[in-house]
Nucleic acid binder design. Structure first.
Lengths: 340, 340
DNA sequence: TAATTTTATGTTACCGGTAACCGAAAGCGC
DNA sequence: GCGCTTTCGGTTACCGGTAACATAAAATTA
């Protein structure tokens, strides 16, 4: 591997001079600079970040901890985050926790040993707080993305689950629906809690009753419709009066598994039942917009998250926490129908 | 930041002993080991990879250079790759070239300065060969994924574009289609070339003519249906005899933009025209399988790619190049229709 | 018990950069 | 031409680990 010493020898200067040329620091005569630059080019020298980071105490690397990059919502966050990072000269280490706190701990270890300058994380649960503390003990700034957790004090960038939820349910009510079921994600995830809160409050404000078995909870990523079918089945089995005319799926994956279950049960959307959900169901939306959704600005979440993180890393605006909550876009499409 | 020296002081041993405990190397008395481990735990010490890599000459980090991680096909590759990497104790630096060789060069620089142990790359074009050479000059193994390029000698892991293409076109022919248009990706990408080759050969084998204007070329990621509409329009304008009854879109994005264009032109799929494409159109496929596709095992591509890469990094099986070509799965669904 | 081997730990130097300090050369005024 | 300032470049030490060598302590043998 070519080092600064090889360049120094070739250009017959000291390594320090080479370092100065590379970093544009100190005073260097033009002739010397050219000599050095020529040697660098000829030997194809590229500085060793590891060596640099040893003295500078920064790695120009950020950790991105998401649940699953192959989930379109998160892959967009990742894309936005990566774009913002390179733009500012940072690299991104990626990881997938699958909502598993064991994995999460391992990734935190990885980020720690990699001495990343900061971490952008969608926490798996409130337990993540311990891991965040661990990062902070090592002076690594953390910004939360997509979700908050109990007891967290610091910057975060979220979609507005509560507001999106309110609007989706209001839309359903406007369309004449009075029996609206919620198939939620796990309640240890803040977005699920917020969506439920929005759902309940909207019903309340409209004097609509909440039936016991209208709310159920499944995995946020269960595309395979494991227990979704039995949940949907139970909803359908309810007597005429109570049977929901609309289902609010807490995210796109749940919506898909709901659609699958409905189909298997021989029900048509939206003729027999309406469906709304959070997050865009891509990419079909481009040619056949079907789902009525609350679309979150995922790439923007990633971008803003990294922006905040880098500001923390570089100690700008350290004064107070920033909590950004980006509103979703409501798209009313073909999965919902006016009734009565 | 806690260092090995802090631990050494706390445990009143030498730094070297701490290093030995951490790496389980050499002989350490149980009592000493426990002393050191206690100190490590108490101070929350995590080894500094940068310092380590300086002597070991390896970073345990791989570079993943894809065109766009928010494209579901690539996000699955990324997921598979990351999974295989962590499993073997490697980290992954991610990047998005957007098919732009300028960006690609910058990322190569980044990988070089990060001293990644290896690079898994979906090259933007034949020009990428220069960058691969650059990596190799620095002894960094490279494995290609999804695409090859002219003049590349080394390992690669691809989907079988030729075979998938053949099967898709054969399916159309079986369904009675004789006029089949191809809307391809850019011909500087090997997958596009291979898909065209499969298309042409299948037509030839079936004694079907290729009309001049049956083949067109657009961006692999043009969801926005920029010029797709004019291309589709031209195809439709052809006289009765020549007008295609089926369109072969070279990937899912193109398929979507074709669908959009057809819809805008008032044509129904598959009643008026059939459509097939490469890559699954997710996630709607789970509840409403619509597209007839050649689905590539994207996650598998990533996994195998990283496996090969790590073997190169760790100098196993260095004897010869391995070229893995994974067959796609053909799914015949509702976007194609029997005619005549 | 002394000599020898084995085990356990310490010392030194180096990986590839850079900060801090220092000295030589060049520019400047008189 | 002499002293002084500025410019330019070199030396040294250190960042946090570890390989290689050295040595002390314990175990084994004679």
């Amino acid at each position: 591997m070519v080092t600064i010493y090889d360049i120094a020898k070739k250009a017959s200067v000291s390594p320090m001079t080479v370092s100065r040329v590379i970093n544009n620091s100190g005073n260097i005569r033009v002739a010397t600079r050219e000599k050095v630059e020529k040697a660098i080019k000829e030997l194809g020298y590229v500085p060793n970040s590891a060596a640099r980071s040893l003295t500078s105490n920064q790695t120009k690397t950020l950790g991105l901890i998401l649940t699953d990059i192959s989930n379109p919502f998160f892959s967009k966050i990742a894309r936005g985050a990566e774009d913002a990072a390179v733009e500012t000269g940072y690299r991104v280490l990626m990881s997938n926790t699958d909502e598993d706190s064991e994995k999460e701990i391992n990734y935190i270890d990885m980020m720690l040993s990699a001495r990343v300058d900061g971490v952008l994380i969608a926490p798996t649960s409130d337990k993540t707080l311990d891991q965040i503390k661990r990062l902070r003990q090592h002076n690594i700034p953390v910004v939360l993305i997509d979700r908050t957790i109990e007891g967290f004090v610091g910057d975060y960038v979220l979609g507005d689950s509560y507001e999106g939820s309110r609007k989706l349910v209001e839309h359903l009510i406007e369309y004449g629906h009075r029996n609206i079921a919620l198939i939620n994600g796990p309640s240890n995830v803040s977005t699920a809690r917020e969506r439920q809160r929005g759902y309940l409050e909207t019903l309340k404000l409209n004097d609509l009753p909440v039936h016991e078995n209208y709310i159920s909870e499944i995995d946020f990523k269960s595309v395979q419709a494991g227990n979704t079918k039995s949940i949907v089945d139970q909803l359908i089995q309810l007597n005429e009066k109570k049977r929901p005319t609309a289902i609010f799926a807490a995210n796109n994956f749940i919506a898909i598994s709901v659609m699958k279950a409905l189909k298997e049960l021989g029900l048509h959307v939206p003729n027999d039942i309406s469906v709304v959900c959070f997050d865009e169901v891509e990419p079909v939306v481009y040619f056949d917009p079907f789902f009525t959704v609350a679309a979150q600005p995922a790439a923007e979440l990633g971008k803003v998250g990294v922006k905040f993180l880098i500001e923390r890393v570089e100690q700008k605006n350290v004064d107070q926490e920033r909590k950004i909550i980006l509103p979703p876009d409501i798209h009313i499409r073909k999965s919902t129908r006016k009734i009565e």
